[in-house]
């Protein structure tokens, strides 16, 4: 089924966005789905435009991806039942203290997603009304556990307060 030219299809919306902001790239995904690669500064304009273009946009998900070496990606996913289309926005961030404008005043449903991304990845959302930790206990605040640099092996044993495992006897070692 070729949906590329029907009004209300994902690629029509993508073309409208690109006409207004030429530095945005688009990439078709399977079916009536499209991805837009948005520069960090443009995120508020693009999300506001999607809100205006798509009357029934559902903010389905928003999350971070750690690509190591201080590179992060943010993915925003919007779904529309009327057009049966999915728009995925991708933002590249590269910094030791990544930062982006919050969009939760346009889509309140993204407020908690941004809050979660903030505590898990350490990405700061400017003008967010409430960046208290959402899921993490106090002792993990500021540790950003979803980053790849967060160790989950035995090396952090002493933080847990549990007794260290007894060292194994060496093979062929002295017997007691």
């Amino acid at each position: 089924m070729n949906m590329s030219d029907t009004p209300g299809s994902a690629s029509t919306v993508a073309r409208a966005v690109i006409n207004k902001y030429p530095d945005i790239e688009s990439k078709p995904l399977d079916g009536n789905k499209v991805e837009l690669v948005v520069p960090r500064e443009k995120i508020r304009e693009v999300v506001a435009m999607l809100d205006a273009e798509i009357s029934d946009a559902l903010p389905e998900s928003m999350f971070g991806v750690d690509l190591t070496e201080n590179k992060y990606e943010l993915i925003y996913i919007f779904w529309s039942h009327e057009g049966k289309m999915l728009i995925q926005l991708r933002v590249h961030l590269e910094s030791e203290t990544p930062e982006i404008e919050s969009v939760c005043d346009i889509f309140p449903g993204l407020e908690w997603h941004e809050r979660e991304t903030h505590e898990m990845f350490g990405i700061n959302f400017k003008n967010h009304p409430d960046l208290r930790p959402l899921l993490l206990p106090d002792e993990l605040v500021g540790k950003f556990p979803m980053r790849k640099s967060f160790e989950t092996d035995r090396s952090r044993m002493d933080e847990t307060g549990l007794a260290a495992p007894k060292p194994r006897p060496k093979p062929g070692g002295e017997s007691s």
Binding site: D56, A57, L58, P59, E60, F107, P108, G109, L110
Partner: peptide
């Protein structure tokens, strides 16, 4: 309208 903005489904 509000339900969709909040992400309800």
């Amino acid at each position: 309208k509000k339900a969709l903005k909040w992400g309800l489904s």
